[in-house]
């Protein structure tokens, strides 16, 4: 029961990633693409946490946290670059 629901959740997350990547390719403006990357990173944090649950490894949560820090920095750095702040 619970596993089936988790599988369904995985399918939904996969579709979300497909949508975000489509936006990343179609873009139209650079800000759209960066926003898509931002969404992808948040989804990735959830996915790493889910993987930690599936593999039953507590320490993978550290990976999610470090990934969150780095991706936040990446988006802020890109934004600062775009507004000619660097």
């Amino acid at each position: 029961m619970a596993d089936t629901i988790l599988l369904l959740a995985g399918v939904l997350i996969f579709l979300a990633i497909v949508f975000a990547v489509t936006r990343l390719i179609l873009g139209r403006t650079i800000v759209d693409r960066v926003a898509a990357v931002d969404l992808l990173t948040v989804i990735s944090i959830s996915m790493i946490a889910l993987y930690a649950h599936i593999a039953d490894r507590f320490i993978y949560l550290d990976v999610a946290l470090v990934y969150g820090v780095l991706s936040f920095l990446a988006v802020v750095a890109t934004a600062r670059y775009l507004e000619r702040g660097l």
């Binding site: 320490i59 993978y60 470090v66 780095l70 920095l73 802020v76 750095a77 600062r80």
Partner: peptide, 28 residues
């Protein structure tokens, strides 16, 4: 991350990179 390198994931290199990311945030 640095202090728990011998018990869980992490260690000097990874922790050093995270320190540098804090510095990068300050510079941004």
């Amino acid at each position: 991350i640095i202090m728990n390198g011998h018990i869980s994931a992490g260690g000097g290199f990874q922790g050093g990179a995270v320190i540098a990311s804090a510095v990068l945030l300050m510079l941004l």
